[in-house]
């Protein structure tokens, strides 16, 4: 019997891509995708279930579908996209409900993969150049995203401890970059003038969007329990990143940076969330050797990931942003999946 997988955050970039990759795997029998919004990419056999943001129906779904694998990609790490209250609901309450469902009696869950972020390490002047998976952060988190991620990781740890028979993998992703993904950093790098802080040239680490998907599939395939940093090799100074993108920097004053940035933020000129100010000052590097030692091979280094992003930006600069080719239509999807009129290849037998 093959895997029965539940993917949270199917409507997000990550959830969608992971589901797409899983569909190609004959070893996966069932894929159930959960999200508040409809999927944005075309899926063949994934069953989409709309839920509210804190997954209150999760318990019923886990019981009804008897899933053995949960891929939790729905954590919000971009605080510009949602308010802090919703962030708490999605990240903390959502994860709590997820693990409550997964640890309910009779649950068949054996594998859990959680997509977290290197934001959990924070950033400050006391930091080492490289964080390993065990390095504690230098200060307690102050921004809502970092606080919520810390709570989420607490739930993950508790769950892993209480359920030793379940393989729990927690992946901490560095700054994700790529042609398709939208994060505060990629949006800043798409601006004609990119914000920076005067007198500071921090070193940044990036991970390519494909490496993110591949690493999730890798830990799933190879049963790798534990915490792993996922980041490309090498660190790049922010000035170099901006140069590679062919943009210019706007230096903001080192004192009262956020005060100056506030009106620019209100005007919507750029939106740098609070947790990125430290990054623009001190940068952050994470040690990616643990995942490499487990056998994972990265497609991109930090530098080549930025280069891939730049190529994507050049293309969209020439041909414009591509229109989304796919729109989810419930009736159409239901027809293809369940109508007796559709001739389906039998793959499971």
């Amino acid at each position: 019997m093959g895997r029965r997988v539940l993917v949270t955050g199917l409507g997000t970039f990550w959830g969608g891509k992971v589901a797409q990759a899983l569909e190609k795997d004959p070893g996966v029998d069932v894929i159930v995708g959960l999200d508040t919004t409809e999927p944005t990419i075309e899926l063949e056999r994934t069953e989409y279930v709309r839920s509210d943001e804190n997954y209150s129906i999760l318990n019923r779904i886990v019981r009804a579908t008897q899933v053995d694998t949960i891929i939790h990609t729905f954590l919000v790490v971009d605080s510009t996209s949602v308010g802090s209250r919703r962030l708490h609901e999605v990240n903390v309450i959502g994860t709590m409900n997820l693990f409550a469902a997964a640890s309910a009696s009779g649950s068949k869950v054996r594998d859990v993969v959680v997509k977290s972020s290197t934001l959990v390490y924070g950033t400050s002047m006391e930091d080492p150049v490289w964080f390993t998976e065990n390095t504690p952060r230098s200060h307690t988190p102050r921004t809502p995203v970092e606080q919520s991620l810390e709570e989420v990781e607490g739930y993950v740890r508790d769950f892993a401890q209480d359920n030793p028979h379940v393989t729990v993998s927690l992946l901490r992703f560095s700054n994700v970059i790529g042609a398709d993904i939208s994060t505060p950093l990629t949006r800043a790098l798409r601006l004609p003038l990119v914000p920076s802080i005067m007198g500071f040239d921090p070193r940044f680490q990036f991970v390519d969007e494909d490496d993110v998907i591949n690493s999730i599939l890798f830990v799933l395939e190879h049963d790798q329990p534990g915490i792993y940093n996922v980041a490309g090799d090498g660190l790049l100074p922010w000035s170099e990143v901006v140069d590679m993108c062919g943009k210019r920097r706007v230096p903001l004053p080192p004192l009262g940076t956020e005060l100056v940035a506030w009106p620019l933020r209100r005007l919507g000129i750029f939106e740098i969330p609070d947790e990125y100010w430290g990054l623009l000052r001190y940068g952050r590097g994470v040690d990616n050797r643990k995942l490499k030692a487990a056998g994972f091979t990265y497609k991109h280094t930090s530098a080549s990931a930025v280069e891939a992003f730049v190529r994507g930006m050049r293309l969209s600069g020439t041909v414009g942003e591509r229109e989304p080719e796919y729109k989810y239509e419930r009736d159409v999807e239901q027809f293809f999946r369940h109508s007796p009129a559709v001739v389906r290849e039998t793959t499971s037998d």
């Binding site: 090498g234 790049l236 000035s239 170099e240 140069d243 590097g285 530098a303 930025v306 280069e307």
Partner: peptide, 10 residues
């Protein structure tokens, strides 16, 4: 793809 020679230690 590198443009500068700044290493991991800066």
């Amino acid at each position: 793809p590198r443009l500068s020679d700044v290493d991991e230690w800066g």
